[in-house]
């Protein structure tokens, strides 16, 4: 029977990856369903999770032949490659993962007999991606932190147009925001210590606090203009858009104003 393919945002979860213990009619039916769903959707393989089964089963289509893989164990990995992958779970989206170039796989066939397979390149990548599904996960765990951040933005915008260059991590404007955040924290901590100080020291602390607040306001203003300048280079980056910059400027202004009011009332 042709099944619906599970797609994002349906989460993989704890209930998946169950070892097949009984090589019976239920398993045979699952293998048939996987093959029919692969054919219908012109895919190169499916893990059982992708059609809603919790079992550790996958079917791979290679040169018009199906390979039925049950309870797979990848026990040898060699070489590293960074393929651009697609998967039916995240339709229309791609990501650059890190995979082994060559793997050795132990698995069982539908009779429960132990089998071995050596796979390289595209086949190895495909099997590794399906094994991730069987272990309750997706290729998200095979992404570098930068790629992961980028892919999450692709998911949010449902667009595959973004690239690391179009939305880089570690923007200078983001560093300014981080500096403001820590400045506010320092201001609050210093203010808290005012309860322990004598009046003479209190006046000095108040002056320092106002200087800090003034600097933070200037930094926020600097962020507002610099972020727009920086954002012009990255048109598709959501964090570079004017709406986001205005919102962040307002949030930081509220934090600094709060610090100012606390300083005014408490000292």
């Amino acid at each position: 029977m042709i099944k619906n393919i599970t797609t994002y945002p349906t989460q993989t979860n704890f209930g998946f990856g169950g070892t097949v213990r009984h090589f019976d009619e239920t398993l045979t039916q699952l293998l048939t369903d996987l093959k029919e769903t692969i054919e219908e959707n012109h895919l190169d393989g499916l893990a059982a999770f992708q059609i809603g089964s919790p079992l550790s089963v996958m079917v791979i289509k290679k040169e018009n032949e199906f390979i039925e893989i049950i309870n797979p164990v990848v026990f040898t990995k060699e070489g590293k490659i960074n393929p651009v992958e697609t998967t039916a779970y995240f339709p229309q989206l791609t990501a650059t993962t890190t995979r082994a170039q060559k793997i050795k796989l132990m698995y069982e066939n539908r009779q429960g007999e132990q089998q071995f397979l050596t796979a390289e390149d595209d086949l190895a990548i495909l099997i590794q991606r399906k094994v991730d599904y069987l272990m309750g996960s997706t290729f998200l765990v095979r992404l570098s932190p930068e790629e992961k951040q980028l892919f999450e933005q692709k998911l949010a915008s449902n667009s595959d147009e973004l690239t690391l260059e179009s939305c880089p991590t570690g923007l200078k404007s983001e560093k300014i925001l981080t500096t403001i955040k820590y400045g506010v924290i320092v201001g609050v901590v210093v203010l808290t210590s005012s309860f322990l100080l004598s009046d003479s020291h209190l006046n000095m602390l108040k002056s320092l606090e106002y200087i800090l607040i003034a600097l933070l306001f200037l930094l926020t203003l600097g962020y507002f203009f610099y972020a727009q300048y920086e954002g012009k280079k990255y048109n598709t980056c959501t964090s570079c858009q004017i709406g986001n910059i205005v919102a962040m400027t307002l949030i930081k202004s509220i934090h600094i104003t709060g610090l100012f009011l606390l300083t005014y009332w408490l000292t």
Binding site: T12, N13, F14, G17, D132, M135, G136, S137, L140, V141
Partner: peptide
């Protein structure tokens, strides 16, 4: 925040 197998 992600639930993954101990393998992963």
């Amino acid at each position: 925040g992600y639930a993954v197998s101990s393998k992963l």
